[in-house]
Design a binder for these strands. Structure first.
Lengths: 250, 250
DNA sequence: CTAGTGCACTGGTCTGACCAGTAGGCTACG
DNA sequence: CGTAGCCTACTGGTCAGACCAGTGCACTAG
């Protein structure tokens, strides 16, 4: 030992260098959302590579949701505002390939929603309370109108709570995980016979949660929200996984 | 209104179709990790497109962490086991471009870690307890040895807790968010004067958390873990954001 | 039996071309 | 003078064919 410690050289593809440079420019704010990249032919001159290489770099950036290109657009690729689409994609992949069970997903939603409620109870504004109230109103109206309308109102309620938590990470993860869960149980719902009873129960539960948030009782709101979600989804979760969900209920 | 509702046609790029097909094969298990894709020249025959198109598709799949290709490999691209690398990448991007503050990240870690502890207290095995114990032991040894060793032991402890929660989503998000947080505060640490005091306090806190987990008291473990993390990171969080963190402490 | 050498093949990159789109200027018509 | 429509100069999407450096494997010479 001793002497100079050599480290293995990592050959870096040309297109990767391009990705890095553009990514850096976007993330540092040098290329704000809405800005345009030069055209591919221009980029190939600036980077001193061929168009194939430029295009491979753009494909990567595009798959990460950083830019979008449109054929014929004389302005070149457009820098996009961040969207959790890439996050969503990778989490969906995770759910599909890595045996992520419905139980784990619901459990994670319980964790997120409970935390959102805990924070919302302390930080919510009157406008946000009104928003939650309105969402519950729409849930009530949608009982006879079918699952889609009901689910949309339900989503709106939880979104309002997540926003009131003031934590973007909670908002985004809530959004991503929820859409995966809804995708997994889609189709298993329409056939349910006691659907209306479940809706009415869910509305009652949401009202209790909202009351706790309004009263500023975070721990209570968190506990109630876990219970609400458990009752709403437990029917879709395999019996063997339900114990793990119950572990989150005091 | 009425009549047939037309929806805008979405032109689908050729490379996107290829991505979809291969993605589907990977996610459905038709191409398990370790399997090899045909070579690019073979793929271009199978899909009936040019090599550039095949390559753009492979770049996308590669940036999503599904496959890896290596020049000269006579077997073609390799299908990878899922790794949260893509998740990590998009969350890092989120943190950089979307003004994700350190406060939000730490708050999210508190949520995740508390939930992991809550679950771990109910589900942990003796082996996992031993692992946590060993990690605290390494933290103790590392007090004099510098921040890196201490931090590594600390990470090991939280990883053990996350694994004991039996929820992969919690494990992965914990891992991703932690590395972002550590990246953000890297460098602000070495200079700290009261570093050793902070370490000793942290060890004491971890011991209390472990005791609660061992006793099976989930709510207590959750509360203590939030406090532990708050005390450890509050010094790096801007004063204006600390109130939001305290909202998570009862 | 082994050490070494080719060879056939891989992915990475380049060149140059064609096509279908788009935007914006130009023209001819009202 | 105003506008509808065309024209052109671009764009990105795709293709074909080529070269190179690197790899694994079979074959061969010792």
């Amino acid at each position: 030992m001793g002497g100079p410690r050599f480290e293995p050289v990592r050959t870096v593809r040309a297109y990767e260098r391009i990705v890095e440079q553009i990514e850096e420019a976007v993330e540092s704010g040098g290329l704000p959302p809405g800005a345009r990249l030069p055209s591919e032919r221009e980029l190939m001159a600036q980077f001193g590579v061929s168009r194939s290489t430029v295009r491979e770099a753009l494909r990567v950036l595009q798959s990460r949701g950083l830019v979008r290109s449109r054929p014929g657009d004389p302005n070149g690729a457009e820098v996009l505002p961040f969207s959790p689409a890439a996050l969503h994609k990778s989490m969906t992949t995770l759910a599909r390939v890595d045996e992520l069970s419905l139980g784990e997903l619901v459990q994670f939603r319980m964790v997120l929603d409970a935390s959102a409620n805990l924070l919302a109870a302390r930080l919510r504004t009157d406008a946000e309370l009104a928003e939650m109230d309105a969402a519950i109103g729409r849930m009530r109206e949608a009982v006879g109108a079918g699952y889609d309308a009901f689910s949309a109102a339900d989503v709106a309620f939880h979104d309002a709570v997540a926003r009131a938590s003031r934590n973007k990470l909670i908002q985004i993860c809530t959004d991503v995980v929820r859409s995966i869960v809804l995708g997994l149980i889609a189709g298993k719902i329409a056939g349910s016979d006691d659907r209306e009873a479940l809706m009415l129960q869910s509305i009652r539960h949401h009202e209790e949660v909202l009351a706790a948030v309004r009263a500023g009782d975070g721990p209570l709101a968190a506990r109630l929200s876990r219970r609400t979600m458990y009752d709403y989804y437990v029917g879709y979760v395999p019996a063997g996984e339900r114990a793990a969900l119950r572990a989150l209920l005091e």
